[in-house]
Design a protein around this nucleic acid. Structure first.
Length: 239
DNA sequence: GCAAAGATTTGCT
DNA sequence: GCAAATCTTTGCC
């Protein structure tokens, strides 16, 4: 059987143009503005270890902006943990929170100005079985110890990445991903633009979650951005 | 060197 | 609705 693609000269364009990654310039300006642009975009992870390609639509982000932001990891200045926040935009910053959950951030703004967007929730688009498998592998030992006969319903598809720790678990992301360029089309984990035929999401801004320690005015800043009506927002009641 | 708290999730009361 | 799980990073002695 013949494959027509073999007949095409090497210089010809492919049948399906590869999705474009988010332009770095989109992330180099104001972080909240970049967050609005990121809603509707896709997080893509290439196949790995027998798991198929995973794609999620970004529906919730939070902005952390500057050393003056008392909720930000950058508040104490550059340290071993947060130093990539002070670097160029488009780079991944992954940290461990509460000793068990990883959180994925995208660095924003210009070098020397520490800022980032926390990816808080995704709508699964492709690779759902891989997301389930990765979440199972990342589950705390207590739950795994319950054994294969534990009686809890499987997680609903739209809830597989409905929280910052769940995004990292479903995509198999840990701190070794820190420093990865998410704007590089060759990167195994990257950000791809929303397709043009897809409607731009309606954006709602709310205060950020879990930062009461920061105090005012930071706890009230409307720097959590969500795609209105998404079934995949973080929190038990899709807050 | 040690103590405390954290950009969360889950299961039980 | 609340507390446990779990460990790195930071602040203070």
């Amino acid at each position: 059987m013949t494959d027509r693609r073999d007949a095409r000269p090497p210089s010809a364009a492919p049948d399906v143009e590869p999705a474009r990654t988010i332009p770095r310039a989109t992330l180099e300006g104001d972080t909240v503005e970049a967050g609005r642009a990121l809603l509707g975009a896709r997080l893509v992870r290439d196949p790995v270890a027998g798991l198929e390609r995973r794609v999620g639509r970004i529906v919730e982000v939070e902005a952390y902006v500057g050393v003056e932001d008392r909720a930000s990891h950058a508040r104490m200045g550059p340290t071993a943990r947060n130093r990539v926040m002070f670097g160029p935009a488009g780079v991944a910053y992954v940290y461990l929170v509460y000793g068990m959950h990883h959180c994925l951030n995208v660095v924003t703004e210009h070098e020397g100005r520490p800022a980032a967007l926390l990816i808080r929730a995704l709508e699964p688009v492709a690779g759902i079985p891989a997301m389930r498998a990765a979440r199972e592998a990342a589950a705390p030992s207590r739950r795994r110890a319950a054994g294969p006969v534990s009686h809890h319903r499987p997680v609903a598809e739209e809830r597989l990445a409905a929280g910052p720790g769940l995004v990292a678990a479903a995509f198999g992301i840990d701190r070794t991903f820190t420093g990865l360029d998410l704007c590089d089309p060759a990167s195994p984990l990257r950000l791809e633009c929303r397709s043009d035929d897809e409607p731009e999401p309606v954006v709602v801004a709310t205060p950020r979650i879990g930062i009461a320690f920061a105090g005012e005015p930071w706890v009230s800043r409307p720097w959590r951005l969500v795609a209105a009506g998404s079934p995949s927002l973080s929190g038990p009641r899709a807050r």
